[in-house]
Design a binder for these strands. Structure first.
Length: 261
DNA sequence: TCGATCCTGTAG
DNA sequence: CTACAGGATCGA
């Protein structure tokens, strides 16, 4: 259930617990989710580096190629003390030489795991927490676009890492109607949107790092207090009007009709 | 740019 | 039973 902050938390934990570890062998439990000869590439390979690009996780192997993991909607990747301890939704396990295991779990099985060459790694847009992401850059990115603001924010090729929740939250904070053509926003609004994105994502990384990255399954607990997501019919925390829901790109968008005019 | 699709689980 | 789920891709 990850957007960028949750993926970041997963990566941090993997780095702390398994970077430098050696994989004895990999077991693919659901072949339809995997691409490439992963079992061959992982045999006695060291996990040299854990990298994140947007929502993509890249596990660099000493054998040369890179394991690309995408958690999609319900995936998770974590270390267990015993590689034989597997839940039913485990889709792949990387058995380490010390007996632990890196488990790729995904009840819904929408996630993907693929073996890539170093020169064909996924490219995504700017990370919202990187120094290169500025209000000026955002203004350039939206220029000329007629797309609804919500869909623009969810486009991983523009700004990477926002999903359905944080896109809605950022738009609320910026006071922007999610249907508004993003290219029609004026400069001050864009600056406010920039600020909102950075604040929402920074807060989410902090809370995710704290609770999402505990051992084992994901914990569906308090994330940062959400202003609009999944709050249809509930009063807006600012103006008390009921939160509205509409469909955009086949997904639900939650917003306040008054605060986001 | 929209809708269908990939899967399974859960809430209503 | 239906609707929907924090994602992405494909074809019309």
């Amino acid at each position: 259930m990850p957007e960028m902050p949750e993926v970041e938390a997963v990566c941090r934990r993997l780095r702390a617990e398994a970077e430098g570890a050696t994989i004895r062998r990999a077991r693919i439990l659901r072949p339809s989710m995997a691409k490439g000869d992963i079992e061959e590439a992982c045999r006695k390979a060291r996990l040299t580096r854990v990298e994140r690009r947007g929502k993509n996780i890249l596990l660099h192997l000493s054998s040369g190629p890179v394991l690309h993991v995408h958690l999609r909607m319900t995936g998770n990747l974590y270390v267990t003390v015993d590689h034989r301890m597997l839940v039913t939704s485990a889709r792949a396990v990387f058995e380490l030489t010390d007996g632990r295991g890196i488990v790729f779990e995904d009840p819904r099985a929408l996630g993907r795991i693929a073996l890539l060459e170093r020169d064909s790694l996924p490219e995504v847009g700017l990370d919202p927490l990187s120094p290169e992401f500025t209000a000026e850059v955002l203004a350039l990115l939206v220029r000329g676009s007629k797309r609804p603001a919500k869909l623009f924010l969810m486009d991983q090729d523009k700004v990477s890492g926002l999903g359905n929740i944080y896109a809605a939250e950022a738009l609320f904070r910026a006071g922007i109607d999610p249907r508004r053509a993003v290219g029609s926003l004026r400069r001050p609004r864009i600056a406010r949107l920039y600020q909102a994105i950075v604040e929402v994502m920074r807060a989410a990384v902090e809370t995710s790092d704290r609770l999402y990255s505990s051992p084992g399954r994901l914990i569906e607990a308090e994330r940062q207090e959400l202003m609009v997501y999944d709050r249809e019919g509930e009063p807006c925390r600012v103006c008390r009007r009921p939160i509205l829901r509409l469909a955009q790109g086949g997904r639900s968008t939650y917003f306040c009709g008054k605060c986001q005019g």
